[in-house]
């Protein structure tokens, strides 16, 4: 069980590191949001799943799952709101071909 937890946490850390590289490398705010959604919906969730497995099947498992669901519900809302504000105030992605 501990090894499964370590495996899940390491996978999560991999996605977190890749997302951070992405947020440094991508050229504009719209592409950076993709890197952010990579860190949120895969990295953080894998680390939290690893912690939940490490805790075992107790009430703490359920508590961590509640935080995990909260992340899954909230982070899309935040990045959508930020990008909508960017779009409505006239920012457009670089190299866009509108179709």
């Amino acid at each position: 069980m501990t090894w499964l937890a370590i495996f899940l946490i390491v996978v999560g850390l991999f996605f977190l590191v890749v997302g951070s590289i992405g947020i440094l490398r991508f050229p504009d705010v719209f592409s950076r949001a993709h890197a952010l959604s990579l860190t949120d919906s895969l990295g953080a969730v894998f680390v939290l799943a690893g912690l939940a497995v490490y805790e075992g099947f107790t009430f703490n498992f359920l508590r961590i799952v509640v935080v995990l669901l909260l992340i899954y519900l909230m982070n899309p809302v935040i990045s959508h709101a930020t990008l909508r504000a960017a779009y409505r105030s006239g920012l457009r992605p670089t190299g866009e071909k509108d179709k």
Partner: peptide
């Protein structure tokens, strides 16, 4: 639909 699109890395709902 919008939440699923935004959760998936690679596509984001803007409007």
């Amino acid at each position: 639909l919008g939440n699923s699109i935004t959760l998936t890395p690679g596509t984001i709902t803007v409007e």
